[in-house]
Design a protein around this nucleic acid. Sequence first.
DNA 1: CTTGGCACTCGGGAACACAGAGTGCCAGAG
DNA 2: CTCTGGCACTCTGTGTTCCCGAGTGCCAAG
Lengths: 337, 337
Amino acid sequence: MLDDRKLAVLRAIVEDYVSTNEPVGSKALVDRHNLGVSPATIRNDMAALEEQGYIAQPHTSAGRVPTDKGYRLFVDRLSQIKPLSGAERRAIETFLAGAVDLDEIVMRTVRLLAQLTRQVAVVQYPSLTRSSVRHVEIVPLSERRVMLVLILNTGRVEQRVVDLPEEVADERIANLRAVLNGCLDGCGLSRVPETVADVPERLPAEDRQVAATILSVLLETLVERHEEKLVFGGTANLAAADFSVGLRDVLEALEEQVVLIRLLGETHGMSELTVRIGSENPYSGLRGTSIVAAGYGSGDKELARLGVLGPTRMDYPVTMGAVRAVARYVGQILAGS
Amino acid sequence: MLDDRKLAVLRAIVEDYVSTNEPVGSKALVDRHNLGVSPATIRNDMAALEEQGYIAQPHTSAGRVPTDKGYRLFVDRLSQIKPLSGAERRAIETFLAGAVDLDEIVMRTVRLLAQLTRQVAVVQYPSLTRSSVRHVEIVPLSERRVMLVLILNTGRVEQRVVDLPEEVADERIANLRAVLNGCLDGCGLSRVPETVADVPERLPAEDRQVAATILSVLLETLVERHEEKLVFGGTANLAAADFSVGLRDVLEALEEQVVLIRLLGETHGMSELTVRIGSENPYSGLRGTSIVAAGYGSGDKELARLGVLGPTRMDYPVTMGAVRAVARYVGQILAGS
DNA sequence: CTTGGCACTCGGGAACACAGAGTGCCAGAG
DNA sequence: CTCTGGCACTCTGTGTTCCCGAGTGCCAAG
């Protein structure tokens, strides 16, 4: 069906089109790559490739352009992920190492990805549900108000102000804090609800009302933030890349957190790259754009995902290399802090 | 110099140009506004206005377009800030009221502003330097590590992991926490350095080393975050507005936090609107864009600024109304939480 | 299966003409 | 002194036409 030469032709077409942004014709192909055959032969191969939907011509008399299916084949079988240069590696390392807290790690990661790939970068905050509790703090603000602070092993901090049903002395709060920390320390977030279920019973009767209030806020926090937080950057790169579809749609999609989260994709095992090409993409506003994403995390648990979004016509080997490398480094940084 | 009719003509030109986005000619003017004179008269006035730099013609034989100077005069003397409709007011209120923490307030505010004005919205997080300490928490993570959490009266939370020079038992940490809270409670951030200066002396000699470490991180936090955090949204609106300058530059400027912060401008007293029109703007990448900004805060202290950024050709009365209204409501929400 | 030759197609740029909107200026009327 | 109508002039934007060149598909020969 597709002999070696046809595959080589497809690869050449993708590479040329990506670098020139112009439909590529048979003559240009034999000039730039030394396939040992004549343009006429290439034309036959191209006809076959078009027949099977890997390439298409924008107009009757123009060169060929890869279709989504063509890119897919290219990514799956014809290309090799390109590792970063040593200089790039070192740049990543020093740039990320300078971050002092989670916010900054995420922010720097976004910038890094955007610069490296010259595309739009998207980074998801380490997920609540997949991380665990490191500490719970209850801070009295006034007699009937406390702030509940939840510190996670990823460095993430969640806080909520809680209005109490009655005035509570500081010692009672301290007691509750101790109990909570006793049972929640190191507890995976998904197990929190069961774990705290019997906390009220272990307290003096007078405190149960208060504890219930605080616990309900705690659980609420987990549920509400189940939709993960996202950050993106590098939108200036959109202006350079000319999208077939108006970039208004792309910008809109970027601001729709929900859409983006789904785009980053489900977990496929860590440091496994997910590539969605053009129409493979569920969201209609993003026809003409591809997403390259990967999971990252500390140790062997995937905590969240990150990736880039760019025109279908992108340099997949380089982009994939960058995404994979950044994902790994971020994982290391998270593990080390 | 500029009699009443000339001013009326300028106002009419601005209004027409804003709504049609086309250079406006003398005939169109007399048709759409009932100035009681003939096109020829208007032409004379226009010539005078052009002479003085309030309007210009893009090409020899086209209508007139307001210059930055023209918009300035319009904003200062010819327009009235347009209040929001009742429905819009209610929408703001309910939308903002649903926010549970500072992050969400800021995020919702951005969305709100972007929707209301159909421009790019920028919101600065409540400033560190102008807020005060509500609570300091020191959470042991391991024997030689603690997390320092700083809770501010704006609801903002800063955290840092601190590596200690020696192992420290929990009681000593608790003592330090108590001392810190004792002297910092309610302390304005700008006064923190002086306030904590004598803390080590008030501790047993053995703890001084540890206290110094923690304090230095605390102070570092204040300095580093002196550059305030920003959030923006509504970039999809950029695609609709056609900028004279490429929108790549605009996107780039948006990602340069430093630039944006300066653009939002210095404090001019609260709920005072700042309008920067086109070239009044210090940053060259933003020629062709205007900024409408206002301060917001709880009570009478301005905590931060917010605003929108759009093409010079924007509907100033409406935009200014929206920015002012949102700033006020956010202030109320912050004060109430 | 490959190759050179050949006729055909079509997009995009250059040249051109033209209509329409708008201006500036001038002379005359209030 | 100000307003008005008239008039000649100057552009831009648009539509039309035309042509070149790149690229294709097909075919017959090696």
